[in-house]
Design a protein around this nucleic acid. Structure first.
Length: 405
DNA sequence: ATGTCC
């Protein structure tokens, strides 16, 4: 069970009932003070019943990232813009022995273009039916989003072989509802004088947000499926979904709504990915019955150590530094044409997923199944740059033809 | 996070 704080003083509700703020991490996980303060401040929100902080806790705009909170009222700002964001893990029908890093990296560069109108699949049809405008469907987006081909680094318990195979390759997709969730949140901010007291889930405003929230959650899950299908198509293989775990959403329960912000909303018996940084190990874990205490939430990744602004100047100052940002210790590569994004998303900006997993296991929330190595990470392609390169190649070929006569 | 803020 987490270390409970706030049984008196500022964390006591006006009615006198204390709001439990549980920490599911140890002192080994360094947590920024402002994130702890944001977590403690949530105890003052009307209707708040229980708050859980995880080892990847870090500060966010309207509240901390890496938390789960049970409340009788709805707080859209705790979920933020990327409603439905999550991680999906797929098994690729591509044996590790046949896998070629450079070839796969080249193929994945095609993922930047929108999939809208370019592919047929059940997931695509379902997602299209949810919203009239779906032009970003099948695209990964920016920030910490990615699509990564992985291999098993180590199986951490005998049962792991029921789920994962060292001879196979896997695909981890981290993406969300793209511009759809951003529109829903902007509308919600504009349509409500204040969200400070939260929304009554039974009110018109509460129902309006919940309805659009549910649509974003479904759309985001389909978006991840479509991204995986597109990746499989360019890699000339197939994908099989192993687990789809959202980490930015609310879930209705008997006592209220659980708000998951950068905390994976897991299900008993379904395995879940915990992402490392793009040049460090990720993990696959099995949620245990003990996760009921944390509202069936666990960490979804390593968590940031430095915020984006803080990263500029720390690395990427020389050509060789920039090149090393796109390589990892296992011979893997990252595709990121955006220099600023590469710096902001450098492995050094993140804490260790291994420590996150250790803390969660220590609190009885999970059992680690496997450590996963990054082989090819797709982040961002500069389409214009790619086109310019193609144009240049065409010019050169024409020039050669002219010379030959 | 966001076809992003200048």
């Amino acid at each position: 069970m987490g270390n409970l704080i706030g049984d008196s003083g500022p964390n006591t509700m006006p009615c006198g009932k204390p709001v439990a703020v549980a920490h599911y991490f140890t002192e080994k996980s360094w947590i920024e003070g402002s994130a702890l303060q944001q977590l403690a401040d949530m105890a003052h929100m009307p209707g708040m019943l229980s708050i859980a902080g995880f080892p990847d806790l870090h500060p966010g705009k309207y509240g901390p990232v890496g938390m789960a909170a049970l409340s009788t009222r709805l707080y859209p700002q705790l979920i933020g813009t990327d409603i439905g964001c999550g991680m999906s893990l797929f098994e690729l029908d591509l044996p590790l022995r046949k896998f070629r890093i450079e070839k796969a990296a080249d193929a994945l560069r095609q993922l930047e273009t929108p999939a809208f109108g370019q592919m047929d699949s059940d997931a695509m049809e379902n997602a299209r039916s949810l919203v009239a405008k779906a032009d970003t469907l099948g695209t990964i987006g920016g920030g910490n989003h990615f699509c990564e081909i992985q291999a098993v680094g180590e199986l951490l318990c005998p049962e792991a072989s029921l789920h994962l195979d060292k001879q196979k390759t896997y695909l981890l997709v981290h993406s969300g509802s793209r511009n759809l969730g951003a529109i829903v949140f902007a509308d919600t901010l504009a349509g409500n004088a204040s969200l400070d007291e939260g929304l009554d889930p039974a009110s018109d405003a509460g129902i309006a947000w919940l309805t659009r929230h549910d649509l974003c959650v479904d759309w985001a899950a389909l978006n991840r499926q479509i991204i995986a299908e597109r990746a499989a198509a360019v890699l000339r293989t197939e994908v099989r979904l192993i687990a789809d775990v959202p980490h930015n959403l609310v879930r209705a329960g008997a006592e209220g709504h659980v708000h998951y912000k950068g905390a994976a909303a897991v299900t008993a018996g379904v395995i879940a990915p915990i992402a490392g940084s793009r040049a460090s190990l990720s993990y696959v874990v099995e949620p245990l019955a003990g996760a009921a205490i944390s509202h069936w939430a666990i960490s979804h990744g390593a968590g940031r150590k430095y915020d984006r602004r803080n990263m500029h100047g720390r690395t990427g100052n020389t050509r060789s530094e920039r090149e090393s940002l796109l390589r990892n210790a296992w011979g893997g590569v990252a595709i990121c044409d955006d220099r600023r994004l590469a710096v902001e998303e450098a492995a050094g900006a993140y804490k260790s997923a291994a420590q996150v997993v250790e803390d969660l296991a220590g609190h009885g929330l999970i059992r680690p199944l496997a450590a996963m190595k990054p082989l090819v990470t797709y982040k961002k392609v500069d389409i214009d740059h790619d086109e310019a390169k193609r144009d240049k190649g065409r010019e050169r070929r024409q020039e050669r033809r002219r010379k030959r006569g």
